[in-house]
Amino acid sequence: MATTIEEPISQAIPPISVRYCAVCSFPLEYCEFGSSFTKCKETLHEEDEDLYNKYYSEEALQKKLGSISLEAQSKLEKDTAAKEAKAEKKADAALKKKMASQVTIKRIERNKRKFVTSIHGLEAFGVDLKKVAKQFATKFATGASVTKNPQGLDEIVVQGDVSADIVEMIEDGVGLLKGVPKENIVEVEEKKKKGGD
């Protein structure tokens, strides 16, 4: 790294393979600046003792101090710890929100005996809406599309009254719907205001 690289190279230079951290995806040496340092460290310790020693042994830590003062180093460490706590909190909050978010299955009356079913809120569980729409379309042999509702949020609209089947599908976790908790399903019915019975 010190000086410029040697110029004429006639053959293809093989790529350097860099080992990335499994936890934070940074190259291992940058874990200390990430937001999950402790976890990165533990994981590496379990996976690869040698590499762990390379980066985190006493000696390495001494060398790492380099040019900055002890004071700055301790400040950095404090910063990292704070960052870590913050990231943890954020992850916690995200999980909580995820568990609290609801999947709404709405049966909408379109024309007396004709219905469409709209499913809203699946995206909170890391489901690809487009693919699920396709899955519904093939399963029920009807049209299914991803549209924006008046609130500007994405929802899946399936032609026909399939709300009961969809509830069942989510409960069983068919295909892409795995990991959607069934406690969060809400079924709603929406009738046309004019001309209802």
Partner: peptide, 22 residues
Amino acid sequence: VHKYPFLLPKVRIDRGAIRFLL
């Protein structure tokens, strides 16, 4: 760049600057 670090001219920053850069 991690695979082929020679593609562009290089400069280096000191340790104190890393966290700001990140």
